[in-house]
């Protein structure tokens, strides 16, 4: 009886959580809009190879600054490249970098956050002092220094962003661990002989999953904004690889002749970042209402 009922129960529990998520999403109109937009963009980007659009890097100096047409859906840029194709290709790069770097911040942040919360005492104080300290450092300058010394490859960007933006996730996850470590399941696991590592990785970290998801979602937005800024300055993703940030670099020089070129990439960044930020809020509301009090 007990064995027969438990999988059913678990299944219902899962569906409920999914329903709670959809319910929270339906209530937050901006998040609903953002998520729809994001899904639409991701599908279009995935379908890009089969769409009747030119290559994003094909230069055609006979067709510069064209208006939207059947051939060039959003017109062409200063090198006669198709703006729509570049938006799709650039978005792939920007979103991928954002996601990779956000994951990196969460991995580093949770490692430190779990250790601080679990061990407490001096370890906790040291880690949290360092976390707060780093929050007070304008990391953008540090990123400039990293890029100046190491060059601006995608790997360098992801690693550098990961190492400078982990503080938010670390604080969030530490709070969660502090809550769980005194609960019965932790005590029981310890009584059964689980070691420190096993307790942290197998028992405590999975409980902090909602916090991890929230941190990742909000992290993608934050990191994408920084990447866009660096790429805009010519210190992030470098041409000919398009990214939404570096598409804006060129538009800066054609503000007089082709101001519309400045619009599209910016709108894409704005909507994508908003989608991830509001999605983070929805996850927070749906997965773990207690996280709401931890501020914006």
């Amino acid at each position: 009886m007990a064995t027969a009922s438990s999988p059913v129960k678990r299944g219902r529990g899962r569906r409920n959580q999914w329903q709670v998520f959809l319910g929270a999403l339906a209530k937050n109109k901006l998040a609903l809009f953002g998520t729809t937009f994001l899904i639409f963009v991701l599908i279009t980007m995935a379908a890009a190879p089969w769409l009747p659009i030119p290559s994003p890097t094909r230069i055609n100096l006979a067709e510069t600054f064209q208006s939207p047409s059947a051939r060039h859906w959003l017109g062409t840029d200063e090198n006669g490249r198709d703006v729509f194709a570049r938006l799709l290709a650039g978005g792939r790069v920007s979103i991928a970098v954002g996601f990779a770097a956000a994951l990196m911040t969460v991995v580093i942040g949770s490692a430190l956050g779990v250790m601080a919360g679990y061990f407490g005492g001096l370890t906790d104080r040291l880690i949290m002092r360092f976390t707060d300290g780093l929050l007070a450092v304008p990391v953008f300058f540090l990123l400039l220094a990293v890029v100046a010394i190491w060059g601006s490859s995608i790997t360098v960007l992801v690693v550098a962003l990961g190492f400078t933006r982990w503080m938010g996730p670390a604080r969030l996850i530490r709070g969660e661990i502090l809550r769980f470590k005194t609960m019965e399941f932790t005590v029981a696991a310890r009584a059964l002989g689980a070691g420190h590592v096993r307790l942290m990785v197998k028992h405590l970290l999975p409980q902090a999953m909602p916090a991890l998801i929230v941190a990742t979602s909000i992290g993608v937005g934050n990191v994408m904004l920084i990447e866009a800024g660096l790429s805009f300055l010519g210190l992030g993703i470098s041409p000919p690889t398009p990214s939404w940030g570096n598409m804006l670099t060129a538009s800066q020089f054609y503000m007089w002749t082709a101001p519309h070129l400045a619009v599209y990439p910016g709108v894409m960044i704005l909507l994508t970042v908003m989608a991830f930020n509001t999605l983070g809020d929805v996850f927070r509301d749906a997965l773990d209402p207690r996280l709401r009090s931890s501020g914006p």
Binding site: L30, F232, G245, G266, L271, M274, N277
Partner: peptide
Amino acid sequence: VIGLATPNFWLGILLIILFSVT
């Protein structure tokens, strides 16, 4: 929500286009 999602340099470009160029 919009303010937190807007790349500030992009807002700058738009404002320059509006208030300086146009």
